[in-house]
Amino acid sequence: MSDEFAEIHDELRAVARGLLGRADAEQAVDWSLIARSGWLGLEAPAEFDGADATFAEVAVVLREMGRAAARSAYPSVAVLAVGALALLEPHPLRDELFRGTVAGAVVPVVALTAEERVGAESAGAVDAHADLTPVGSPFRLVPGNDGLRLHGRAEFVLDAPGADRLLVPARDPGGELVIAAVEPGAPGTVVTARPVVDATRGLGRVSMDGVAVAQASVWRFRGDGERALRRLYDRAAVAMACDSLGLSEAMLEATVGYVKVREQFGRPIGSFQVVKHACADMLVQVAVARQLVAAAVGAQVTSAPDAAAAASMAKAFSTDTAVRVAGKAMQLHGGMGYTWESGIHAYLKRATLDRSLFGTPAEHRKRLARRYASV
């Protein structure tokens, strides 16, 4: 990424760090505060009261969310919902929802399963150079006597339990991939919370059993719907990479600070060679993750041809790194690291979930291996 906007990013980072640092770790960050900060509209066009910025600015906030292990639906809304709305053709109801999302009046969630595999085995026969993210949706729109009916189910949808609008990717009767806007309380819609190891995140199962959908609530993508859905998955993967990078940086800083003051045998434990080496290894891993995440974010901003590969590289390495760094931080904190009061457990659990969401490292590496198999 260019340093052209470095000063703006530094200012945004400082504001986000200060705001998130003051938030209650046991409570979700105040949604109205996030909306007033303008973070929801960073990437939204000016016509919808957005800042007309790019994914690079969203990534700054995502990284700080990870650093603070913040409880918020921001990644789902700013990355997936805003991303999906921007990819849709203009429509009065879509435009109204876009403005409401930017203002914080609506919390839309895209019903994409966070467990979606990115390996080629589920995508059928593909070219080695093709984008290997499987497309499609478990939802389908079928014609009924009184209009369209939505059927299907998605497991482990990020932030689904707290959504007040569901954006459901579905196949219409003609086989085209569209977005159906559904109220969570609509008859036939069931959102069930799915408990996971990370208490800072909420996931849920979204089930649709004959949900009536008005034609006006079915919106089409600009261009190819499959390509748009691939792009959303890649955006989500990069968002998890940003979150993982932020929490890795937080764990590295906390550990270095701790080993400087914790004494054993009359000297700081940071003076012992084995501890120095462990911290140096953490630093190298975080530095590599930082470069890969920056490349992935830049590729998303410019819609580069290799954006999918950059997303997989960043997701695979940074999420693996976060688990290793958080685990090492817990170890270097000694007995204190295993206590509830240290807070390190929250970062380790979050890192573990980040590693699984939107493709595991193994699946993303398989995607990269297939992509370059014939190079």
Rank of each mutant, 00 (worst) to 15 (best):
202 G>W: 10
172 D>M: 10
158 L>I: 12
201 R>K: 13
208 M>S: 01
178 V>W: 10
201 R>Y: 07
171 R>F: 09
198 D>F: 11
205 R>L: 06
181 A>H: 05
154 A>E: 03
149 R>H: 14
166 L>T: 02
173 P>K: 06
179 I>P: 04
181 A>Y: 00
213 V>P: 05
162 G>Q: 13
191 V>Q: 02
198 D>N: 13
186 A>W: 07
173 P>G: 11
162 G>M: 12
161 P>F: 12
158 L>Y: 14
192 T>S: 10
161 P>M: 09
166 L>F: 02
175 G>T: 15
161 P>E: 06
150 L>S: 01
197 V>H: 11
208 M>W: 01
208 M>R: 05
186 A>V: 05
148 L>H: 15
189 T>K: 01
197 V>Q: 12
204 G>R: 04
183 E>I: 00
158 L>N: 13
212 A>I: 06
208 M>C: 08
157 V>L: 03
215 Q>S: 15
166 L>W: 02
207 S>E: 15
179 I>N: 08
181 A>D: 09
175 G>R: 12
161 P>V: 10
193 A>K: 07
197 V>Y: 06
161 P>Q: 06
179 I>K: 06
152 G>R: 00
192 T>L: 12
199 A>E: 15
153 R>A: 00
199 A>K: 09
174 G>M: 13
166 L>N: 04
164 D>R: 10
189 T>W: 03
155 E>M: 02
